[in-house]
Design a protein around this nucleic acid. Sequence first.
DNA 1: GTGAAAGCGCTAACAG
DNA 2: CTGTTAGCGCTTTCAC
Lengths: 344, 344
Amino acid sequence: MTPRSAKPRPAPTIYDVARVAGVAPSTVSRAFSRPDRVNADTAERIRAIAAELGYRTNPLARALPTGHTSMIAVSSSDITNPYYFEIIRGAQAAANERGYTTLLADSQESVRLEREALERAIPTVEGILLASTRMSDSAIRMTAKQRPLIVVNRDVTDVPTVVTDHAMSVRQSLDHLVELGHRRFTYLAGPEAAWANGMRWRSLRTYAAEHGLQVRRLGPYPPTVTGGVRAAEDFRAHRTTAVIAYNDLVGIGFMKRLISLGARLPRDVSVVGFDNIFACELVTPGLTTVAPPLRTLGSMAVHNLLALIGGAHATTAQPPTLPTRLYVRESTDVPATRKRAWAV
Amino acid sequence: MTPRSAKPRPAPTIYDVARVAGVAPSTVSRAFSRPDRVNADTAERIRAIAAELGYRTNPLARALPTGHTSMIAVSSSDITNPYYFEIIRGAQAAANERGYTTLLADSQESVRLEREALERAIPTVEGILLASTRMSDSAIRMTAKQRPLIVVNRDVTDVPTVVTDHAMSVRQSLDHLVELGHRRFTYLAGPEAAWANGMRWRSLRTYAAEHGLQVRRLGPYPPTVTGGVRAAEDFRAHRTTAVIAYNDLVGIGFMKRLISLGARLPRDVSVVGFDNIFACELVTPGLTTVAPPLRTLGSMAVHNLLALIGGAHATTAQPPTLPTRLYVRESTDVPATRKRAWAV
DNA sequence: GTGAAAGCGCTAACAG
DNA sequence: CTGTTAGCGCTTTCAC
């Protein structure tokens, strides 16, 4: 009465197919792995018989002699982070399209777990995609020696990468704010160590210098809602009409706190974030933000990884830099012209 | 000048280790697979030499003779759905703990992709975990014949499952609302086909009957923010002081629309959702909700799957039903006693 | 306790 | 074009 879930009846092999087809096992093998090297008719016949017998190539057995497992590892420090799944999904889709299966390694922010997961995965995969990693540059270079590897949104010397065009993202949000009439900006900085933070701040200053604008910096803050709340406290002493947050979470925390302090958004302050996380359209007002090309980042990374696996040389030239897109919601507007708008 | 990412120097094998250790390859093999069947000292020596040589057991080669790949497939219809990654993560963690690697199959809501991904994965995995699937019951039973399989939060006859305690979740939210003083409720229904929807509505009616409460049902609505917005429109003609939404997304859309119509929440209406997605604490007011035991669901599923793989019989008895937890935020309060509180 | 030898299912020369 | 023959790296009887 208790149903067994598995019925381990041994699967048919090329030998079984060969026998009933009256050919050598190697011919069956060829019929599947290099159909061009076998007579079209026999190939067809073999396929038919195989189908009838329910034969399916065994990827494990195939991988042993060839080393070609058709699997890549995708490592993420936190699949729970709304920022990463689109990358993962883009990677997945691209991999599947090319006949590859992805092995997911979520390290839950733990370097140890990440190492362990990779350790375990490496022997079975043909390449590695680091979607977000907590590993050190040198550790990354180390593993890059074991397998073709590509890293997303991080700059590691001698390791191929695919990155977001941060300069463009900053330009998009500032163009938008300037067009609305803003001239003075505050940047709510993220973690000093974050590569994106440096990139954004630098681009911001460059842009400001070129356009004769004022830009001030507050922080650093943790890249979280709480970080944004703290930023709002600090902001009260250093007002500007527009604010650029390190990311959406900070932007949301910032808005939330400001509103609870009595500010009216976007009339009193315009806010823009980065990342375009799902919550941007759920909060009130909806957060204007710049979306990184997540999906493309993932698929491009896989594309390049597969090229690497195929024997391409990693180029030291400029890594692919993918364009971003601005999503205008309700958190940005023309600056309030009324004198003394919002008093704490 | 162009660094190769892979340095395919052949990895050391048991033969290499055996040679320098002066033992037979089979002994090296045993030292790793059944250390108890080998002299403790030689085992130790072998391990030392192996470490020195950088030898690592090759899971592929090991899998061929044994069929033991140490991999399970986790299939999700949508990794992008905030509801699922915690399940996936719980599964991941549990699997890793037991030495298993997870192969992620995101089907992006496409039955075809899901089938393909599973098709590809099946030969290499020892078991399958359906975290969320669009497959039909019979398709599920079909694949359950090929590999040990377990499904999460879905009721499929003859297939082992792990589910959320829906009755409990309803009880928790209603206990909370009743305690606040509410007596009349509206349920914003989700998709008719959703198993959870049926469970919730049924539990709701039972509870209401037992406690002499009134409960009305609106919908069905799509399980999205937009669905919630539509629900809010309908609600205007059928007010109650408290509302139970099919899920958080619906609850959030509902609140958003009501507020834009001039309602003051939670004074005019108390709202509770289900799922406890991340956005619940980002919206204003924060959404009171019931959290399913996502992580546990995932780990419990893996636990049971591994047992199945180990040869346990699937029991037809009650599947594990995991307890939920209520998170009280700002969207619930005592009902407004003032007459004619909110007029559209 | 350890070695020898025979595969696991498939691919890849090498002949024919 | 197709059959023969070795392996891929590891596990596993079966003797010693």
